[in-house]
Simulated assay, not measured.
Amino acid sequence: MSKRRTVAVIGLGIGRSHIDEGYARLRDQFDLQVICDLNEERLAAVGDEFSVPRRTTSFDEVLAMDDIDIVDICTPPTLHFPQIMAALAAGKQVICEKPLVGSLHEVDQLAATEATSRGRTMPIFQYRFGNGLQKARRIIETGLAGKPYLATIETAWLRGPNYYAVPWRGRFETELGGALLTHAIHSHDILTWLMGDIAEVFARTATRVNAIEVEDCAVASLVMQSGALASLAATLGSAKEISRIRLCFEHVTFESSLSPYAPGDDPWQIIATSPEAEARIAKALEGFKFVPSRFEGLMAAYHQALETDSPLPVTLKDARRSLELITALYHAAETGEAVVLPIGKDHPKYRSWRPAATAPR
């Protein structure tokens, strides 16, 4: 019989979605015992909505609760690193929203700490889950897709003054970045999850939609380790919101649904280059089981990993790869030069990808 894990959710903005789409649908696996938020009105509203027995404004109080197994951190980005470190020190399992931390230096520190901790950290990349993307993943993992050729990734969302009225948003000091870090990071994670590591990055960024400090438009050109090419485009000024992932391989082309916030869901186009490839792909998908979307799919896979002590569905290695791309994108945009990966400890942006004028000293 599987263990029902007790959970505390810290921060009830996106944290409410973790509850609504994840824990509330997976009550046999998770027992949401505690919510924590500085906004007492929101704390009461979410607590009443989901009948949460314990509510507090104190993160330290949560860490002192011996009966809590998992601390799920959904606070502003600059709080993630110290809160993850504190939760690991308290012996908790940790889930944390993106961006996981604010530098490659910090994610490396987390990895070192986790190696000697009782708990593990799962970064959040819920867009990996859904039937369409999971079918593509299976086809690629079996080797049936063949050589990767080209990828085009579009994140065309809409964010305006109301979104940026939240004081910590739109500033490098508190949000740590803009469209590339906070929005397009999901689709860019899917790119590397399906097509592998990146060798070189060139990028340009601009702030054209909102009166903010961070970028809200960006384009980038990538060379993958495999030799495949990829283009990235992101804007927060699209009247029609879409996320589009198109991946061209030797034997098949994949194209995602256009759903902006659930690109992993069906319908995905899976177009084989020949009848023979189509038959092999159909056979590989025989017996494919439904994969829930977004947080439900992610949290179900997470619980299974805890039960079996197997690799988490999203790991610190995944987060580091994502943050390495972020570091390269910002450095390329700032310098006007291509950036070669991997990025090591001697790189000028290893301790912070923020522009020189806003970087911590």
Results as ranks from 00 to 15, higher is better:
K3S: 12
G170W: 08
A234F: 04
E255K: 08
A356S: 08
A228L: 01
I84L: 03
G177H: 06
T155L: 04
S352C: 07
D20W: 01
G22F: 01
A8S: 07
V291T: 06
P53M: 07
S226L: 04
H18N: 11
F30G: 01
D20L: 04
C248Q: 10
K345I: 15
H188P: 00
I245L: 15
E278Q: 11
V34T: 15
P275V: 12
S256F: 06
H105T: 08
L158V: 09
L285R: 05
L232W: 15
R169N: 09
Y302D: 03
S256T: 07
E213W: 07
Q269M: 12
V214K: 10
R244I: 10
E141K: 08
L26R: 13
G132F: 03
Q29D: 14
E250Y: 09
V34M: 08
H105G: 10
G336W: 02
S231Y: 09
N162H: 02
T155Y: 15
L63F: 09
T121H: 03
P275L: 12
V101W: 10
A218T: 06
S274D: 07
D48E: 14
A44H: 14
E276M: 11
T358M: 11
R42Q: 11
L312H: 00
L63Y: 09
R204N: 06
S51D: 10
A220I: 02
V52A: 05
A277E: 06
H105P: 00
E173L: 02
T235H: 11
L133E: 09
G178R: 05
A284K: 05
F125K: 02
Q33A: 07
R280D: 15
R54N: 09
G91A: 03
G47C: 12
T327M: 01
D48R: 11
A179N: 10
S51V: 04
P313K: 00
V34P: 00
L247F: 15
P267S: 10
Q83P: 01
P292V: 06
P292K: 07
R171I: 08
G160V: 05
M195C: 02
G47T: 04
A112D: 06
S117Q: 04
Q225A: 13
V62N: 06
A328H: 00
P77M: 01
